[in-house]
């Protein structure tokens, strides 16, 4: 059974289109990353999947059910973000106990162990936590709920590097012991890429790519060398980014679909091929820089005018 399935999913807020016909499906018991810049439509998509928002058009199914206003989906999924609200009258420990009452897979031992490990006070209040602590607490709820569909939307906001590392480790370990479908949106792709199986890449309300993390890592390649070394056929390659370094040197980021003959030729000419990490590839693909010279272009006229 597919855990998630969408077809031509559209979401509009008034006139603004947040999702512009998104189609994909996610296999059960996989960890999928969701990457995209601010405003790409990640949060909208994730909230629709957990039934918190209503789609404007298209089809969306979670374990075969339309999620909006659906008790079945609500009971089998959880949406964790950095804006969660809990009653101010409840202490942190009481909130965890509510979680235990509501979620049928809830592991209270795990919840309490993580709670102690991260140094929370049982009588603490959710609205009195710092941003990083709040994210950590929400993450505990997300892990302990063991929901069939567990969604983390930017779960690491405000967490320091050590806590983020602990979180990824805890997520992987608990996933290995209790496989479930996990969706994780993040701005720190380089930190999570190794624990992801697949990746969804979004830009401006569209789905750019849905591929395995392994393929994403070799999706782009950096080609650098003197301009006159570059063979003509490179013009036909899909250009993601171009950077001039000095008057003669040049680095271009291209889609990595060279034949071995082409690679040989480049090597012979002294052109360097170097890997582009998934997170850099994603920046090149979705950035304002896409196909251009990046933010440098904004400043390119300035030096000239200054020298006049």
């Amino acid at each position: 059974m597919k855990a998630v399935q969408t077809k031509e999913l559209i979401k509009k807020y008034g006139r603004r289109t947040a999702l512009n016909g998104v189609s994909f499906s996610i296999e059960e018991n996989t960890i999928t990353g969701l990457a995209g810049r601010n405003g790409a439509g990640k949060t909208t998509l994730l909230k629709i999947l957990t039934g918190l928002l209503k789609e404007s058009d298209g089809k969306v199914e979670v374990y075969g059910n339309r999620p909006f206003n659906n008790l079945q989906v609500s009971a089998n999924s959880i949406y964790i973000d950095d804006q969660m609200n809990f009653p101010t009258s409840l202490t942190l420990k009481e909130i965890l106990e509510e979680g235990r009452r509501f979620y049928h897979n809830w592991d209270h031992t795990l919840a309490m162990n993580l709670f102690d490990y991260f140094g929370f006070h049982p009588k603490g209040r959710h609205n009195e936590l710092s941003k990083g602590k709040e994210s950590t607490f929400n993450m505990i709820i997300g892990l302990a709920s063991r929901s069939a569909l567990t969604i983390f939307d930017e779960p690491t906001t405000g967490m320091d590097a050590a806590v983020r590392k602990d979180f990824y480790r805890a997520l992987l370990k608990d996933y290995l012991a209790y496989p479930r479908t996990i969706l994780l949106s993040t701005h720190h792709l380089e930190e999570v890429e190794d624990i992801l199986e697949d990746i969804l890449l979004m830009d401006k309300g569209n789905l750019l790519m849905h591929t395995s993390m392994e393929d994403m890592k070799s999706y782009a390649v950096a080609v650098s060398g003197r301009k006159e070394w570059m063979p003509e056929w490179m013009e036909d390659k899909h250009l993601l980014y171009k950077e001039e370094s000095g008057p003669y040197e040049q680095t271009v980021i291209l889609q990595n679909n060279f034949t071995s003959e082409e690679k040989e030729e480049l090597k012979r000419k002294g052109v360097q091929l170097s890997p582009v990490s998934a997170s850099d590839a994603f920046v090149y693909m979705t950035g304002e820089a896409n196909g251009k010279g990046g933010v440098d272009d904004v400043f390119s006229g300035r030096i000239d005018s200054g020298s006049d």
């Binding site: 996989t30 960890i31 990824y168 480790r169 992987l172 370990k173 290995l176 190794d194 624990i195 992801l196 199986e197 395995s212 993390m213 392994e214």
Partner: peptide, 11 residues
């Protein structure tokens, strides 16, 4: 292996 190397089991 996934646990040892902190990677996705599919990898």
């Amino acid at each position: 292996l996934a646990e040892m190397y902190n990677i996705n089991p599919a990898t």
